[in-house]
């Protein structure tokens, strides 16, 4: 057994513990009778545990991609249903951080992708957007130029210029880049997942920009 296998199996263990922490904290935050003096502390706990969990999922997925163990399962999904679930699984956390999370798309918009993989990209992107958003995060989907575009936007200060241009260079070797540490793994992960989506010679990609429909940062996932 080599070290990466040991690492992978410990990650599963840690994830189970985090799962329990998360559901307990969820209950704590959701219960109006709880006796915590500072509710924000609990929310912070919840937020960080969720982030740790998302990171672990990313690590595991990247480990599998590295070992060629990851099977991409592309299927047709309705975006309205899909985004509703994304919002549902992140809404409690956003609410406790006083950020409003909403989504928008045409009710009959369908797309082709691996739901599990795209879900983990969006979960961690939303987790990231929490830290920059002032009051709201918007998730949306639309068809543009023959691609399905899923966007996660916030009303914060936006991405620094260094980051948007850096994307292409760092995508392939994240350790070599000098971008802000916490987002590195996330962007590398998102790029890897996007590139696993192929159709008719076209490949998925991600793009960062500022001020799309909200004034802050906008993360875009382009899927063929």
């Amino acid at each position: 057994m080599d070290f990466s296998d040991i690492l992978a199996s410990s990650i599963h263990d840690i994830k189970n513990s985090l799962g329990l922490i998360l559901s307990s904290v969820d209950e704590l935050v959701g219960n109006p009778d709880n006796k915590i003096a500072d509710v924000r502390q609990a929310s912070l706990l919840q937020h960080e545990a969720q982030r740790a969990n998302n990171n672990l999922i990313q690590l595991l997925t990247l480990y599998k991609i590295g070992n060629q163990q990851l099977a991409v399962r592309i299927a047709e999904h309705n975006l309205d249903d899909f985004l509703e679930e994304i919002v549902a699984s992140n809404s409690a956390l956003c609410a406790s951080l006083d950020v409003q999370l909403s989504y928008g798309c045409e009710p009959d918009l369908n797309g082709y992708f691996d739901a599990d993989l795209i879900r983990s990209v969006l979960d961690s992107t939303i987790g990231n957007a929490h830290r920059y958003a002032k009051t709201q995060i918007l998730v949306s989907a639309a068809e543009e130029d023959g691609y399905l575009v899923i966007r996660v936007e916030d009303d914060g200060g936006g991405f620094p210029d260094s980051l948007s241009g850096l994307l292409e260079r760092m995508a392939k070797k994240p350790q070599g880049s000098r971008a802000a540490g916490r987002t590195q793994l996330g962007l590398f992960f998102a790029t890897s997942i996007a590139e696993l989506h192929e159709n008719n010679g076209k490949r998925g990609r991600i793009q960062l920009r500022n001020g799309h429909s909200l004034p802050g940062g906008c993360f875009e996932l382009w899927l063929p």
Partner: peptide
């Protein structure tokens, strides 16, 4: 349903 899941996700899923 992948672990962990939130109450809201379970509600949405069950309703559907």
């Amino acid at each position: 349903l992948a672990k962990p899941f939130t109450k809201e996700l379970l509600r949405t899923r069950l309703t559907k």
